[in-house]
Design a protein around this nucleic acid. Sequence first.
DNA 1: TGGCATGTTGGCGA
DNA 2: CTCGCCAACATGCC
Length: 258
Amino acid sequence: MPELPDLQVFGKNLSKHFAGKKLEQIKVVNGAKLKDSQAALKKSLEGVKLHSVYRSGKELRFEFDNDNILGLHLMLHGELKLFDEKNDHKNTIVELLFSNDKGFAVTDWQGLANVKLNPTDKQGVDALSKELDQQYLEEALQTKAIIKNVLMDQDIIRGIGNAYADEILWEAGISPFSKSNKIPAGKIKELARVIKSVLQDAEKQILKKKPDLISGEVRDFLVIHNSKKKESPTGSPILTKMAGGRKTYYTEEQQLFE
DNA sequence: TGGCATGTTGGCGA
DNA sequence: CTCGCCAACATGCC
């Protein structure tokens, strides 16, 4: 389950491989979760040059020269497989073949990964966008919901998942179970800064470790949401508890506002 | 060995 | 109406 920093790296690497290439063929192998038919995808995209690949929230976007955009959501277990690697792609959802005889498959054993033609953004702002600032956060946190659920709510902030929500809240010194509307302005300011720094730093770490990453995820550098670690960098025992149906990693160092 | 891990959606109940 | 929780989706991994 790649998260935002992984997707950021995938996007860059996919651009490297395929930007400027013409899409020869798009083939739907498992269309169960797709809103668009294979015919519609072919009509909109085949024969058109791929302009660029970028990330938006937890999606990748393939922007074509005719202004059509193919959105890709990998969900929990989706993977990208290049054709010039091994070719036994099980559980394929869709395949894209480009003009240089190369291409990639989107696979998912659970069948949940999906592509969508010209997706519309949810109302939330992207986690790395400049719209996500202290002021936006202050308004978004006018709710009784616990802070971790707000950070993961894609209608409020797009791109933060379970693992990075824990990392961000530890770095900001805020308990994940804090009531959002009880967090003081100073902490919100800190949180706005930390969201960016944690995500950007993670991308740097991934690029350093796996510069060509296009599938899977790198997360052994996570300091809190990491089952191999017993203590935070400052020596506090890492605790776990369920929240929002997910396992939450945190420590007593984080201040609880309620 | 089998419990755990991941995101989204939609339904339920407090 | 708001918020938290749960099931469903279906498999590989340590």
